[in-house]
Design a protein around this nucleic acid. Sequence first.
DNA 1: ACCGGGTGTCATCAA
DNA 2: ACTTGATGACACCCG
Length: 683
Amino acid sequence: MKYLKPWWSDGGGLLHLTVLLSLAGLRLDLDLDLYLLLPPPTLLWDELLLAGGPTSSTYALSPFAASGGWGRADQLHPKSREPEPEGRLLREVRALGVPFIPRTRVDAWLVHSVAAGDADGAHGLLGATASAASAGGVGAGVEDSSQAAPGDGDPRAAASSPVAAGEEERAPAGPTAQVLDAGGRANQGSEVLRERHEAVDHSSQNEENEQRVSSAQERSQKNEESKIANNPDWEAEKPTESSNEGALNGTDTAFSLEDLFQMFSSQPENSLEGISLEDTFPGNINDGVNSSIHYNVNFSQAISQDVNLHEAMLRCPDNTFRREPVARTSQEPFLHLHSQNTNSEQNLPGTNLTGFFPLVGNQMRNLTSQDLLYDLDLNIFDEINLMSLATGFDPMEVAQLFEEPDSDSGLSLNSSHNSTSVTKSNSSHSVCEGATGSNSDLESLSHHDLEGAVGGYYAEPSKLCHMDHRSNSDFHGDLTFQHVFHNHTYHLQPSAVESTSTSFSRHGKSQKSRRYLNDTDRNLSRDERRAKALHIPFSVDEIVRMPVDSFNNMLSRHYLTDLQVSLIRDIRRRGKNKVAAQNCRKRKLDIILNLEDDVCNLQAKREILKRERARHNKAINTMKQKLHELYHDIFSMLRDDEGRPVNPNQYVLQCSQDGSVLIVPKELVTSGHKKENHKGKRK
DNA sequence: ACCGGGTGTCATCAA
DNA sequence: ACTTGATGACACCCG
């Protein structure tokens, strides 16, 4: 077993840098990368994973510390570390042709340390390592999380939010479990490592990426069949994915660590803050983006990975966020990161630096977890974490987006539950956006920062869409994919925008929050912004309109966190319900209108009938009058046997069935009527 | 400040 | 058992 020895022991330069970062919070992105200026690391960081990992209930690195290697930061002392021969890492990396492995993990540790504000670097590194494995998208180590006991004295345990409180016990165990998982996989032998290296050796053998990745995926998948959801179409689609990723992560984005060392070695350590992108990378970075030279990875990639890992390790293995109070209160580095990213974009017009974030992520994960051998797609975790850190947005803040009480899934804006959490978050965000006092502001913060810090990150959604949309052939057949390349701005179709975003903007609460949103986010609905915050690679419109088969297929086909799946389902449910409500109201309105029309029609008909009845009554009265006159005329002409006129008051005219007319005394008629009525009653 | 309409959302039920 | 649609109820916002 090789013991991981802290690289900061080699002069303590990075430790110093860490302190600087934590105190000043300056230039997080650049500084983090500049650790490479320091003497080279002493151990390939993959060995941490391959070494088997810790098994004790304490933090995973404790066994290492007991063995004289790694330990918790409070157990470490630079003087106790023997410096490794310089260049060992360099040689190993060169031999393996692996870019970025140590870098990302060190960055992750560093970011975490800075963000957490504590000296517990061991946590950070472990978290980063675990996150790297977790970020691989497999999350196979999650099931082991319960076996790892929570760390002792973890300041992050003092979570304030309900979610964090609920997860705080598992939070420290998550990274440990991940490391254990990664270490356990290392038992499968050096082939795994070789596969990993092969799978990510984009820099020298880009043309073989697809085949290697596919083969590695197949081999690894055989080993992980029990852990990985085996999609029948997965392997068949992988080559396509790999091909796609190859375009992203291929030679263009790879550069050797040695090159970086050489680059940074020319920079004095005391001028770290003065290093600019232009200073760091010779030549035009813009050109480097599209070139195949080794220096074509810009700093934003590194930034993204720092962000990525930092956020990734803040996640519990069960894909829930845990709160890291210290991190929440020490986010200035993130703000600087934010500003620097923005500056980077400003300095490099036309170059979407953030658009390349995933590239390094792929490389890193490929090296840090064999799970990634068959998941070269950037994992959504990374995007979430990237967004969170890059924006100075704590994952808990992201989680708080999903704690809004006016949503069944906690996804709503509610200004009532934010008094404490927002205050904490405002400590950093207020710098950028001024004081914010509501949770809705928090949401706006996230998106504002997201837009500001991540900036162009969403401007090139295709680079961020690591999910295999093309594999979702079912949905392709069902829908016209206007957002097939995952426009993370989630602009709905004009009709949809009109029905959702516009209507949503009516809500003043969202209006308040939208005060802090830029033009892009201002037009997004709440679910759209949530989806954006969680980097869900589907538009809300897609999620809602997607047929159920395609929808389920999508969920099973992609590695999505529980949070993402929950959000996607909520979005789908809310979206459908919204449409249903609109239809219902329209239907109700139509019914009301129809009823009003019916009322009008019936009223008109009633008037007609009234007039007709009046006319008929008038005719009846006329007939009665005429009959009465006729009656008296007839009686006036009638005479009895004695020639006297017949009294009409004593006699009546009665028509028999044969047509003859009889003069009948009224007494007989009345008595006959009484008898008939009597018989009728008897019956 | 109040009111009515519009909208989103949730809970619930039924198909 | 799950999905979906329908709908009442509620909250919120806007004019």
